[in-house]
Measured scan of single mutants.
Amino acid sequence: TLFEALYDYEARTEDDLSFHKGEKFQILNSSEGDWWEVRSLTTGETGYIPSPYLAPV
């Protein structure tokens, strides 16, 4: 399942991933609570992002 960003987000740590509203992601790991490890389909980068900022496509 692909997810889309509902809002912009600016990374706060080196493990976070900055992204823009509308960017699409592949979920790599969603078992860590509200922070999911994802791969951006736009940039190819991986990192953690807050799951409340995402919605299924």
Rank of each mutant, 00 (worst) to 15 (best):
T1W: 13
T1E: 12
L2I: 15
L2H: 06
L2A: 05
L2C: 08
L2T: 09
L2S: 05
L2P: 04
L2K: 04
F3G: 03
E4S: 06
E4H: 08
A5D: 00
A5N: 01
L6A: 04
L6T: 06
L6H: 04
Y7C: 14
Y7D: 08
Y7G: 07
D8I: 02
D8T: 08
Y9F: 08
Y9S: 03
Y9V: 04
E10R: 11
E10K: 12
A11L: 02
A11H: 06
A11W: 03
A11F: 03
A11N: 05
R12H: 10
T13G: 15
T13F: 15
T13R: 14
E14P: 13
E14T: 12
D15W: 15
D15S: 14
D15T: 14
D15P: 05
D16I: 12
D16K: 14
L17V: 07
L17M: 14
L17D: 00
S18M: 04
S18G: 07
F19V: 07
F19R: 00
F19G: 01
F19K: 00
H20Q: 12
H20M: 12
H20L: 11
H20E: 08
K21P: 02
K21N: 03
G22R: 02
G22C: 04
E23Q: 08
K24A: 05
K24I: 15
K24C: 07
K24N: 05
K24T: 09
F25D: 00
F25A: 00
Q26I: 15
Q26G: 02
Q26K: 08
I27K: 08
L28I: 12
L28P: 00
N29C: 08
N29Q: 07
S30W: 13
S31E: 11
S31A: 11
S31L: 10
E32V: 11
E32K: 14
E32Q: 14
E32W: 12
G33C: 11
D34I: 14
D34S: 11
D34Y: 15
W35A: 06
W35P: 11
W35I: 12
W36I: 06
W36Y: 07
E37V: 12
E37I: 13
V38Q: 01
V38F: 01
V38R: 00
V38I: 02
R39L: 11
R39D: 00
R39I: 10
S40P: 00
S40N: 13
S40V: 06
S40M: 06
L41C: 13
L41K: 03
L41D: 03
T42P: 01
T42C: 11
T43M: 01
T43G: 02
T43L: 01
T43K: 03
G44F: 07
G44C: 09
E45V: 11
E45Q: 14
E45F: 11
T46C: 08
T46M: 08
G47I: 03
G47R: 03
G47F: 07
Y48G: 02
Y48F: 13
Y48A: 04
I49E: 00
P50D: 04
P50C: 14
P50Y: 15
S51G: 10
P52V: 15
P52M: 15
P52I: 15
P52E: 15
P52Q: 15
P52D: 15
Y53R: 02
Y53E: 02
Y53D: 02
Y53V: 06
L54I: 10
L54P: 02
A55H: 10
P56L: 09
P56H: 06
P56T: 06
P56E: 09
P56M: 09
V57E: 07
V57C: 08
